[in-house]
Amino acid sequence: MSPYTLLVLLVALERLAELAVARRNARWSRRHGATEYGGGHYPAMVLLHTGLLAGCLAETALADRPFLPALGIPMLALALAAQALRWWCIATLGPRWNTRVIVVTGLPLVDRGPYRLLRHPNYLAVVVEGLALPLVHTAWLTALGFTLLNLPLLAVRLRCENAALATAPGAATAPAAAPAAR
């Protein structure tokens, strides 16, 4: 098994860990009166993110993409930074974090951690990872394809999440505050 294959498999395991955290957090949120918004786009998001990982492996194998250290090492650093940012988001939101758009009624928006800097820092992690992970091993078609497909999906997701978050206490006065979802 190549180091790149191992990296992609580790990211896949990380995704499974995210899903386990999300399921646990969804149960907590529902017990606390949460409402889920925009579930219709969720299957497309899961499919696209799964396709990213499959594309990384398929393109490097089928197109015989080389590892170019001058590109691969900086992209690895960015991919790892994206993972760190994602888990910083998860830790900051605690039980309010989810891969779905789930908002607990009555809870104010989060304004600490990465959310004091960006409204949707986890989406920055997704965009960076979608470019960087494939480019660790020059899978440029996967990076391009994921990015082009992710842009309209991300636009739908952001509209959905922003509408959901507008229901939170203080939402009108906290433009930099953060969501309780991914």
Rank of each mutant, 00 (worst) to 15 (best):
P108Q: 14
G145K: 10
L151H: 08
N150K: 04
V136A: 01
A166I: 01
G113I: 07
L154Q: 15
L124M: 09
L141H: 07
G145E: 11
L151M: 12
L153T: 14
C160M: 14
V136T: 00
W140C: 09
V103T: 08
W140D: 11
V136W: 00
F146D: 10
T167G: 01
G130F: 09
R119T: 04
T173R: 01
P175Y: 01
T173M: 01
R119L: 08
L131Y: 03
L151A: 13
L149A: 03
A132F: 00
N150F: 06
G106K: 01
P108R: 14
T173G: 00
A177S: 07
H137P: 08
A174L: 07
V110A: 10
D111R: 06
L117P: 01
L117V: 08
V156N: 14
L153V: 15
I102D: 03
D111W: 04
T142P: 05
D111Y: 02
A178R: 06
T105L: 03
A143R: 03
R100M: 08
T138H: 02
P121V: 06
A125E: 06
A176F: 11
L131R: 04
P152E: 14
A168Q: 11
A171S: 03
L158E: 12
Y123E: 12
A132L: 00
L109N: 09
W140R: 08
Y115A: 05
L158R: 13
D111G: 03
V101P: 00
P152I: 15
A143F: 03
T167Y: 01
H137G: 12
T173C: 01
R119Q: 10
T167P: 00
P152M: 13
T167L: 06
L153Q: 14
